[in-house]
Design a protein around this nucleic acid. Structure first.
Lengths: 182, 182
DNA sequence: AGTTAGTGCTTCGAAGTTGAAGCATGTGGA
DNA sequence: TCCACATGCTTCAACTTCGAAGCACTAACT
């Protein structure tokens, strides 16, 4: 992108510093994700999505509703239904109705699921340490954590959609469906 | 992650600081990607993969081979064939044989493709600015760019796969296929 | 209570992604 | 030259992902 357009896009150009930081951030994370994916597939034969789901369950005392799970991992509801089906068939989780809310499905991690996560964690940690943590000083780590925390909180605080895209002019009296299903 | 497990959780060596930084980094990037995806779909009706491909072409003077393209964006070859088919059908790129190597397919961005990228760029930049850049000071930006550059270079320098990791007796049987395309 | 709107999850169809296999071309050694 | 192997891309089948529609249950308002 050599920026040869006269001024039609220069309204909010990014300087090289900003652009470079954005690119390298995305690229580095993409590479890290890829390595993690490989490790999990090779060692435990599960995808990183499945690992995240199991890890989340293990961390939260073993039981969550589908919605809580989907919100934790950035994931669509229908996608979660699919993955939960796989995990259940593999005997790593079980699903049951919640006593509080008859609609809710309570997902519970099994012993086998816990064992799998436990067995996979060391290798996972090793990959993260080797690829991400090793080249960072304690100071870097603090900085990075601080910065990304601020960015994440900022994003979470952002309104889902300030203005509706021009795709559908929307109904007469329906401003926003508010259903933010990733 | 309350860390109440004595030592069975295998968190050997990742203190809360490290773990938290890793998590928030992945989560923030995931959220950013999601927002970018939405913007591109709403404004230009293309996926972020397609945008990346077009942007790469635009940046590299308009012409690359399929392999060069796939390597630039972290993407499978077969997936690129599929996407290139879509982009060609949409009139955003053309494909032709290379004069140097009869096997190679030379991908060229069209005027229409260039126009689309140019038109989409401001909105894209706006999203990145609003979500990522706004909550950062100049100092943060430098720090972040510096840190992630170091991490990325470190990853690129890593050997692909020196030795197969030892398997844990936890998961279902997996013969560990060492196929590494990407 | 009765009706209306909201919430939680699943099903369904369409589209995207991948690795392995296959085809065509290029390269290096006997 | 011939042959084996490497390289570049595509095809194929299986799998994953998503959004919209649908079902079941809950909450709110009258």
């Amino acid at each position: 992108m050599t920026g040869n357009h006269p001024d039609t896009d220069g309204t909010q150009g990014l300087d090289p510093q900003q652009l470079g930081t954005y690119f390298v951030l995305m690229e580095a994370v993409s590479l890290l994700q890829h390595h993690v994916e490989q490790q999990l597939r090779a060692e435990g034969d599960i995808s990183s999505v499945q690992f995240q789901l199991l890890a989340r369950l293990a961390a939260d005392d073993g039981q969550l509703t589908m919605t809580q799970l989907a919100d934790g991992v950035v994931y669509s509801r229908s996608g979660l239904t699919y993955q939960a089906g796989l995990l259940e068939k593999a005997g790593l989780i079980t699903r049951g109705s919640s006593p509080d809310d008859e609609r809710a499905t309570l997902v519970t991690i099994t012993e086998k699921g816990l064992a799998l996560v436990g067995g996979l964690l060391p290798g996972h940690i090793q990959v993260v340490r080797r690829l991400l943590l090793d080249p960072l000083t304690d100071d870097d780590l603090r900085q990075l954590g601080d910065i990304m925390t601020r960015v994440r909180d900022h994003m979470r605080a952002q309104p889902p959609r300030s203005a509706a895209p021009r795709k559908r002019p929307a109904g007469p009296t329906s401003p926003a469906p508010a259903t933010t299903q990733h």
